[in-house]
Computed example of a mutant assay.
Amino acid sequence: MSDEPVFSRADLPPTNEPLRIAARRLRWFRAAFARVVGSVGEEVGCAFEIDDSKLTQIFIRWLEALDRQRPVPKEERAAFLEFASSLAFRELISDLPIRTRGSPVRAKREVPGGFWPEAYACMIFCLTVHSATLEQEYHVATTIDPQGGDLRSWWSFRENAQEDHAFSAGFFQKLLGHEPNWFVPEQFRYRIGRWLLEPEADGTQTQSPP
C-alpha cells in the first residue's frame, strides 16, 4: 500500500448531503459499503457475501458510540471527525459482516488483501469514506502509514484484535499517522497528543503528526 492519497469519492454513492451527514444514514452507509466491498473483491479476485443484519447492527453501535463521545468544543470537531472512522473500523472488525466466497485469486497471501481479505475490505471502506469526508470538509489529503501494507503489522493486528476489539481502533489511528493510546484507543478524550488540521501556504490543509 502506498502512502500517497489514493482514496476518492469515486467508489461512493452520490448524495446531496455532506458526506459527514450521509454517512449517518443507514441506506447510504449500506450502499457505500456494498460498492467499496465490491471494488475490493474485484481487486483481490474474490466475491464477498454481506450480512445486512450484522451490518445494520454495526451501524447502530457506531452511531451510539459517536453520540456518547461527541465533543462540545468546536476546535475538536475536525479531530473527532477523523476519530469517528476508527470507531467504525472497530465495530466492523468486532463482528465482520462479510465473508469470502472462495479464496482471493489475484492477491498473494503475503499482502493484506490475501492474508485477511474481509478485514482488508473493511479497512478500505473506512479509509475511502474517511478520506472523501476530510477532503470535502477541510480540503485535506489523506496519507496512509506504510505499515498498512506490512504483513507483519497485519499478523499482529489480527492476533490482538481477536483478543481485544478496541485494538482495531488503535490500528486504524496508526494507519492515519497518529500514535494511539493503546490502553483506551476507542476513547477520544484520552487520545495521545492533539490531532490537528493545519493550513498550508496555498490555503489547503494537511494532517499534522500528533
Rank of each mutant, 00 (worst) to 15 (best):
M1Y: 05
M1H: 06
M1L: 05
D3T: 07
D3M: 07
D3P: 13
E4H: 12
P5V: 03
V6G: 10
V6R: 14
F7G: 13
F7D: 10
P14K: 00
P14H: 01
T15P: 06
T15M: 08
T15A: 05
T15E: 11
T15R: 12
N16L: 14
E17Y: 13
P18V: 15
R20N: 10
A23E: 15
A23W: 05
L26H: 03
R27H: 13
F29Y: 15
A32S: 06
F33S: 07
R35D: 10
V36P: 11
G38P: 07
G41E: 00
E43H: 09
C46K: 03
F48K: 12
I50R: 14
I50N: 08
D52E: 13
L55E: 09
I58S: 06
I58A: 05
F59E: 11
F59M: 10
R61K: 14
W62I: 04
W62Y: 07
L63G: 10
L63M: 06
L63F: 02
L66V: 12
R68S: 04
R70Y: 12
R70I: 04
P71C: 12
V72K: 15
P73V: 04
P73H: 00
E75F: 01
E76Q: 06
R77I: 09
A78F: 08
S85R: 05
S86K: 06
L87H: 08
A88R: 02
F89M: 05
E91S: 03
E91G: 03
S94C: 04
D95N: 13
P97R: 14
R99T: 13
T100R: 02
G102S: 03
G102V: 00
S103K: 12
S103M: 05
R106A: 06
K108E: 15
K108R: 02
K108Q: 09
P112H: 05
G113V: 00
F115I: 02
P117D: 01
A119I: 00
C122T: 02
M123L: 15
I124E: 11
V129W: 14
S131I: 04
Q136G: 05
H139I: 01
T143R: 14
I144V: 12
I144Q: 08
I144K: 13
D145N: 08
D145E: 15
Q147A: 01
G148D: 07
G148P: 00
D150Q: 03
L151Y: 06
S156A: 06
S156C: 04
S156H: 09
E159C: 01
D164N: 11
D164E: 15
D164L: 15
A166P: 14
F167K: 04
S168K: 04
A169T: 12
G170V: 00
G170K: 01
F171W: 12
F171P: 13
Q173H: 08
K174Y: 11
L176P: 07
L176H: 11
G177T: 05
H178G: 05
P180N: 00
N181V: 05
W182K: 03
W182C: 05
V184G: 04
V184K: 13
P185V: 06
E186Y: 10
R191Y: 09
R191V: 03
I192S: 09
R194E: 09
L196N: 08
E198N: 12
P199C: 04
A201E: 14
A201P: 10
G203L: 10
Q205W: 12
Q207H: 10
P210N: 10
